[in-house]
């Protein structure tokens, strides 16, 4: 591990200043992802700027049913929050499906959003990776890509975003609160927070140097919504998603789907909001054939690789089964 300094600024302005003044400084939150990557030599920061001294670790429920989650809230605390469990159970389920108890007690909301891909080539500095070393090539496309993306990827990068939490947040229409380096507070919908890899897979989010994630806001959940997180993984716990789905469904009195929101994990460079499927389903009755057709339409744009093509079928089956269940029709 390259030697580094550790700094603990008192407020966001100081932190931004430190980050701007030192081009090789990075933000440290729980450290569960950053420190691992430093040990592997993937990240070699000259300085760690610890933001835990001032980052909010509060969960503020609003009268309208919305909630503001501080960026410093630990994954374990968020999963255990009564209001979250009652109003946004899909979020609690997603958090509890992630990592292990020890990790969730360290991991923060901000760090979870900004965690890096688990692609084996990104993590191995002896091999090329366009995300780690722009222009060096993507070793995954010809190598081990079984766990990587099938949609929204590019010829330069097929990495997935590994977060479970972010998938639930995507389905809940979350807004990320940022403090820009110049002090401006902005709210960015999660759907605009992550960038498609395209030719610049090293640019993953809209967060620029000196910016700090300060929190995540959830609008009130739609009245009568049923929601669920189903994570398909290779072992019963402590494994990243092969494919996961977060779904929020509102059934109309006539049995049609008044509202349906679907986000997927394990398939794309970002939590993948299945807008095509959603549009096809809104106002429809959740019959298996309709559901399957909608899910298939979502993946018309998929670009699977030889070893991960099964994920497309798995995602289609998972969407079909989950919405059928939440839509309340017998299968």
């Amino acid at each position: 591990m390259k030697p580094f300094t550790y700094q603990r600024p008192a407020d966001p302005a100081d932190a931004a200043e430190l980050l701007l003044a030192q081009p090789d400084a990075v933000v440290l939150a729980g450290g569960t992802n950053l420190v691992d990557l430093m040990k592997l030599g993937v990240l070699q920061p000259g300085s760690l700027v610890d933001v835990s001294g001032f980052t909010s670790d509060r969960i503020e429920h609003r009268a309208d049913g919305g909630v503001l989650i501080g960026a410093g809230v630990r994954n374990a605390d968020l999963a255990g929050d009564l209001g979250v469990r009652q109003r946004f159970p899909v979020l609690a389920e997603a958090l509890l499906a992630g990592a292990s108890g020890q990790l969730r007690s360290m991991a923060t909301t901000g760090g979870n959003l900004l965690q890096r891909t688990r692609c084996a080539y990104f993590q191995d500095v002896s091999k090329p990776c366009n995300k780690r070393e722009p222009g060096s090539g993507c070793a995954a496309i010809t190598g081990q890509h079984r766990d990587l993306g099938v949609i929204g990827t590019s010829d330069k990068c097929v990495a997935t975003h590994p977060s479970d939490m972010a998938v639930a947040l995507a389905a809940l229409d979350a807004v990320v609160h940022l403090r820009r380096a110049d002090g401006e507070q902005v709210g960015v919908p999660l759907s605009e927070f992550y960038l498609a890899p395209g030719d610049t897979p090293e640019r993953e989010t809209i967060v620029d140097r000196g910016d700090l994630v300060t929190g995540v806001e959830l609008p009130p959940a739609p009245a009568g919504a049923r929601m669920r997180y189903h994570k398909v993984r290779d072992r019963a716990s402590f494994a990243f998603a092969v494919v996961s789905v977060a779904a929020v469904v509102v059934r109309a009195a006539d049995g049609t789907l008044a509202d349906v929101r679907i986000a997927l994990g394990g398939v794309a460079p970002m939590p993948w909001r299945a807008r095509v499927a959603e549009a096809a389903l809104r106002g429809q009755r959740p019959e298996p054939a309709v559901l399957r057709a909608a899910a298939q339409a979502e993946f018309a744009a998929a670009r699977p690789l030889p070893d991960n093509a099964f994920k497309v079928d798995l995602a289609i089956d998972l969407i079909t089964a989950t919405i059928a269940d939440l839509g309340g029709l017998p299968r």
């Binding site: 688990r118 091999k127 070793a139 010809t142 081990q144 072992r235 019963a236 716990s237 402590f238 494994a239």
Partner: peptide, 22 residues
């Protein structure tokens, strides 16, 4: 890994062994 010649999944996130829940 046919291209690089090593075990591509050389850690416990990539090489799974049974966890308690299994």
């Amino acid at each position: 890994d046919p291209v690089f010649g090593d075990f591509a999944n050389h850690d416990f996130a990539g090489y799974h062994i049974a966890a308690n829940a299994d």
